[in-house]
């Protein structure tokens, strides 16, 4: 009986595959954060605050992304906001 159950469960529940995929996502996030400067979260928060004062953007309309290039670091700022059509 147990064998029969295992046979049917095999495709739906391969926990090692789940582990591998979850780890890949986690570790790529960890690695990205590892290289970021410590001040980045604060800078990000302050930038968002200042921008929203002018544009009334929603939180998700302001994106700050960090890039680490061989010689220098870079942040990219993407802001959008709804236009008040006349």
């Amino acid at each position: 009986m147990k064998r029969l159950r295992n046979f049917f469960q095999k495709d739906s529940c391969q926990s090692a595959d789940v582990a591998r995929e979850r780890l890949k996502v986690m570790i790529s996030q960890d690695r990205m954060q590892r290289n970021q400067p410590d001040f980045l979260p604060r800078l990000q928060r302050e930038l968002v605050e200042v921008i929203r004062r002018y544009t009334q953007s929603e939180q998700d309309e302001i994106q700050v992304s960090y890039h680490s290039l061989p010689q220098r670091s870079q942040i990219e700022l993407n802001v959008s906001w709804p236009r008040n059509l006349p």
Partner: peptide, 10 residues
Amino acid sequence: EVSSVRDSDR
């Protein structure tokens, strides 16, 4: 095991 592998990466 997931937590061990993640910590190894750290």
